[in-house]
Design a protein around this nucleic acid. Sequence first.
DNA 1: AATGATCTCAACCGCCGTGCA
DNA 2: TTGCACGGCGGTTGAGATCAT
Length: 348
Amino acid sequence: MRNPSSSSGPGSSSSLASPPMMKQRQKGLPTPCCSKVGLKRGPWTPEEDEVLAKFVRKEGEGRWRTLPKRAGLLRCGKSCRLRWMNYLRPSIKRGPIAPDEEDLILRLHRLLGNRRWSLIAGRIPGRTDNEIKNYWNTHLSKKLISQGIDPRTHKPLISSSSTTGPDPPLPQGPKIQPPAATMPYRNPNPGANPSPPMPSLLQQTSGDQGGPGIHDDQDGFFGGLSLERDDGWRDSDGGFAALDLQGSRGGDDGGEDGGIDCCTDDVFSSFLDSLINDEFVLHNQQHNVYYNDNHNNSAKDRQIQSTDPVTSSEPGFGLGTLWESTFTSPVLGLDEEIHGPLVDHAGK
DNA sequence: AATGATCTCAACCGCCGTGCA
DNA sequence: TTGCACGGCGGTTGAGATCAT
């Protein structure tokens, strides 16, 4: 990780670079914040950090547009906000992503997709959407690809490549390995609906106290959740669609999303907790879940739970195990998981 | 040691949703 | 109803760090 202080070198090229030509805004004129005349850009200096942090601690967050002037900073409000949100906030957690955090990211990404970084970050205390996004693009997506999993759909690359259209540009991934021969990912229904199960947020038939009784099937963690609608959760191209949370953009402060129709933050929060916890518990019950990047283990091996260390070396119990079985229902195909038994709950 | 390739992540950009006058 | 200010989001960029040759 780049040393924060090292990023503050004065006279960096980026800070001297002239801002690119602003595109004509579709609506209205450029706001004051967008007129970069006389404003500094590029890495923040420790002095600027101190000024900003002190000011926000004293005056509170908000009014970012006017904050630079009030605080005496030659930055635009957006830059100040970003610096505070992503770096200066006291609650920001520093250091590498922990194994449990990584697992949470993976599962939340599978649930929420690429366009809900703030929501994912909101479930991981101390982490910012920017950090999560970067970590995904630089680490996790590559890890999935190396296991033959499409990071966008969380499905095997071979089948997904023919069903989901062009793959997203891989961020600087020239060292991506071809799908491993011992790919731990099993998809019993490769031709099935490429979209993941997408439960309704309107109804949750079980409490969120560990979600007992949720799992009608052994692997699907949406059991017991009702489907309220059968549209709105697919991309227009039929590919993977994340939870379509209305109003998720422009929501509140980078975290708890408040835009779900008919849902409160608490309900959605509980919903996510339920999904996360249920899946986690389920897998720990069924498998010895290891976090194994398949390449460099020793210090990075993170054993979340294991009852038998011997099985930990078994192929197929690497990272892929987690998502493997989320697609692997012993009884139902993916479509059936979605539209089959659960539809009974959705009829209402 | 020098050089080029690759990786990481802070910062920027444009767009969008909301609130308000 | 309309237009603007503002906050917030996801995608992208590029400087610096690190690795490979």
